[in-house]
Structures are given as C-alpha cells and as structure tokens.
Amino acid sequence: MTGTPFLEVRNLTVEMKGESGAIRVLDDVSLRIERGRTMGIVGESGCGKSMTALAIMRLLPPGFEITAGQVLVEGEDITRVPEARMRALRGNDISMIFQEPMTSLNPVFTVGDQIAEAVKQHQGLDAGAAEQRAIEMLKAVQIPGAEARLHAYPHEFSGGMRQRVMIAMALACQPRLIIADEPTTALDVTVQAQIFALMRELQQETGTAIMLITHDLGAVAELADDVAVFYAGKRIESGPAGAILRHAAHPYTSGLMSCTPRLRLSAAARDGAAVLREIPGMVPQLGRMPQGCRFAPRCPLADDRCRSVMPPDVEVGPAHAAACWKAETEVMA
C-alpha cells in the first residue's frame, strides 16, 4: 500500500453555517481508499459518515461547506476544481449508490433509458451502443430477462431488483470508486445477502474500489478490507478490517462491537443470553461538542486528560490508528 491511493481525504473539515455561527459537522477527517479495495465507514446516525461521502462528491447540501482539508483523487485536489471537472468525475470515475432504491430512480423513465443516459453522457456512446451497454449491465447484476426488463419502469421492480438496477447504473461507466451509502438498509436480510454477494463478485471482475457506508459491523466484516470508524464528526479509528474487528483499539469501537447482538446457533443457543453490553448515554449534539475527546462523557476509561485535550491519532498497529489517549498497541494473538 505505497504510492498514491485512488482517493485520499486529508484533514477534511466541513462546517454548517447557521444563525449562531458555524457548526463543524466533520472535523479533521483523513482517509485513504486504495484501488480495488473496500473501505467500510462505520458509525451511528449523525456521525458524519454520509457527510464525508457527500463532501467527496461535492454534493453537500446548501449551507454546508468544506472549510479545510483536501480530497485527492489520484493526487488531484478536487475540492477546488471547477464544477465541469467535478461533473466529469461524478458518474465516470466515482459513482454513488443510495440507501433508498425507490426514490433514487426516476419513476418516469424506464430503467434501460436511465442506464443508457448515464453512459451516453459520460462515455459519449451512441444510442445503440448505450442500449447494448444497458443490457450488459442488467445481465451483470443478474437481473433475469435483461432485454425485456430494459423497458420496465422502476415501480415494476421489487426492492432488491431496484437496488440491482442502481448498482448497474453505478457500474455502467466503469467507475474506479463506488460510494455505497447504506445500500441494503432498506432491504430484507436474504436480499441483502444477495446484494453483498453481487457487490463482491462485481468488484472482483471490475477491480473498482468501494466505499461502504454502514451502521452494521456485520456488513463491514463481510465486505470490507479496511475500516474507518466515525464518532460525532471525527474519524476515531481506522485500519485493516481484521485488526479493527478483532482488536479494536478505541473504546467506542469495542463498545459498538459488544452492543451488537449476535446470532448464536447450535449449542450456544441453549445457554441463557448474556446481557448485551451497552454504551451509556448518547451522541453529543452538534455544536455542543465536549472539549476533549468527544467520546469521553460516555467512555468507561476516560480520565481528566481525555476530558480536556483532544487525543491525536496514535499508531497502534500496522496501518491501524486510533484517536484515543488510552489506545493500546495491538497484541497479535
């Protein structure tokens, strides 16, 4: 993992301009997404994980603004490039899959038209070639009867099939990074499993990198090579998925791990359920962040230093960093 990664986010800060001054929604966030790898971004709602994706795409809602830091796509800082360059990047090099497949497809056009349109715009293909590509893409996402389904409207698809169509659209221009924002949250578990299997398969074929935004550590374990954990607008831990899921260095990450209910099959199912550990309290409010570490008020390990001084990123293992005064170096078991 040397050289320039495909995407690097450096010290990104996003602020929301409000009546009572600016509120930081993302604070000094750094990330590296390597070519062809999957980066899982985990955190609770409001932690800034979706905001990071929107900032990368330069699609921040009105009132939000990147106030510091860089987003480097193969070394090019895209926070300052003209909008025309951004339009070329979006869809072409970086595309996005959203949570709600019903509302992210246009209900008045057939899915074939929508895929073909994207290809025509970004790759300059003619109508015939674009349609051909649309059929290929629908086949690639394993939609049965692709030729016939080309002329169907989004409402004629089930939720899982719509998410497949979204993936087909995202892949149509052969992007090098797909940002998937909670792509299966609206779907049933059996369908989620299908979508995850599909995403893995397509990644192996196309070599695209994936940024998977999710609240589900199970999804991270299933798909991600690398993980970044967000809390209250900060990236508090990052590193290889295996290291983080097995040796979480930040107390918030280990807290999340221990409050996720596990399915216990076989003999374990006969034991009474152990009490689920909980993280007490709740996420601090935007604009009312505690002075030191943002997790300190809920952290069982917090001391006076944690409450007064923001901890820096500490290297706790190979490519594994945690922003915690108490983080211990990984002990390889």
Binding site: P280, G281, M282, Q285, L286
Partner: peptide, 13 residues
C-alpha cells in the same frame, strides 16, 4: 440532526 437535551438515558438511573 440530533435532538436537544442531553437529558439522558441509560437503563440505569
């Protein structure tokens, strides 16, 4: 975004 009061909530008191 998040709501107002840090008026809390653990199952404990």
């Amino acid at each position: 975004m998040m709501s107002s009061e840090p008026m809390q909530a653990t199952a404990a008191p």
